[in-house]
Design a protein around this nucleic acid. Structure first.
Length: 155
DNA sequence: GCCAACGTTGGC
DNA sequence: GCCAACGTTGGC
């Protein structure tokens, strides 16, 4: 089993939005980055766990946990000319972009903020805290996953 | 709102 | 295949 981190802007789609979806499940559309896509296609499996990260907001940080309930399949928003994620180069016959379905598990007891994660020397190799990192989906090692979850109880 | 960092595009 | 120009991300 693998661990992940998913970024989302809460003004677009927050952890609360996910928890309010029917069956607390939604498709994770709009990934338009090859590296993120390749992670989804190659390594992401049903049952994997993911941190839900709020980006581009007042207090960026990890706010919850979700799980993968459906493995990579073509992102239909790429073929919808009205969608902001439309990509004419992605066709039904030869889809370029993929998505997975994720289900809400729980919110963390508190927001583990980016500022805080940056302070932790144990996480200095964690991709999220590296300068200029723009990956919207990234792998998390088991060690980092457990270490970060251990921060939840601290104040 | 600013701007550094980064990925993509397209001319050559 | 190089690389300048451009658009986007996302912290601050």
């Amino acid at each position: 089993m693998n661990y992940w981190l998913f970024k989302s802007e809460p003004s677009t789609f927050s952890i609360t939005d996910l928890s309010n979806m029917p069956n607390k499940t939604d498709h994770w559309d709009g990934v338009r980055n090859y590296q993120a896509r390749n992670f989804m296609m190659k390594d992401m499996r049903k049952g994997d766990l993911a941190f839900f990260y709020h980006s581009n907001c007042k207090e960026p940080g990890i706010v919850g946990i979700a799980t993968i309930v459906k493995e990579a399949y073509p992102d239909f928003t790429a073929q919808d000319a009205k969608s902001p994620y439309y990509d004419p180069k992605s066709t039904a016959e030869n889809p370029r972009w993929f998505m997975v379905d994720v289900k809400y598990i729980r919110e963390l007891k508190r927001n583990i903020t980016l500022a805080e994660l940056k302070e932790l020397k144990e996480l200095k190799d964690f991709p999220l805290v590296r300068k200029g990192n723009r990956l919207s989906i990234m792998p998390v090692t088991k060690e980092d996953w457990n270490f970060i979850l251990g921060q939840e109880k601290k104040t």
